[in-house]
Amino acid sequence: MLNTVLISFLSLFISFHNFHVTQTTLHYNNSSDLIEITIQVAVQDLESALEDQGAKQLRIGTDNESKSTDQLIKDYFERRLIILPNGKPTHYQWVGKEMSKDLHDLYIYVEITNCQQYGKFTSLSVENSIFTEILSDQANIVSIEFGADNQKLTFSQNNKKQTVKLGQ
């Protein structure tokens, strides 16, 4: 049986760093029929994750940022943050990204367009495994803002998929 294996590498013994939390907001914009997604991550963790998969020196948010960065980021989050309205698969439209004022975090903006195709929202499944492949103490927080439905979820290495009911 393969279980209880350690995979933390940046996590222990460091007294001053970001402590591995991401914040994601899923906001349904009724008037434009979009799910607006804002993902807040530590730049350092994002670089570690992308470099762990073979990317070379991205220098995210600097003047020398690698050209392929946006595409790599979009691909990464399409695999690690999966949004399933009524259980149906979705694709992201890239909107953009920006550094936080304190230079620590990156805000990533993507959207899911034309949401009426999924029908009236009755459920939303979220699979969130952002950075859990490299950080054992990763916590990923998701806020769902679908009209009157305001829900908050926490994801971790041991809890990567959750489904909430909408429009009850």
């Binding site: 590498f9 073979g54 495994s129 054992s136 290495q157 041991n158």
Partner: peptide, 26 residues
């Protein structure tokens, strides 16, 4: 005790680097 009590799990997409670090640590 520190190693035994730290929770962990395997990710389907673990890179070679991550697996190597896991080995080194253990």
């Amino acid at each position: 005790i520190g190693q035994l009590t730290s929770t962990s799990s395997i990710d389907s997409e673990m890179s070679f680097g991550s697996i190597k670090r896991m080995h080194d640590k253990m």
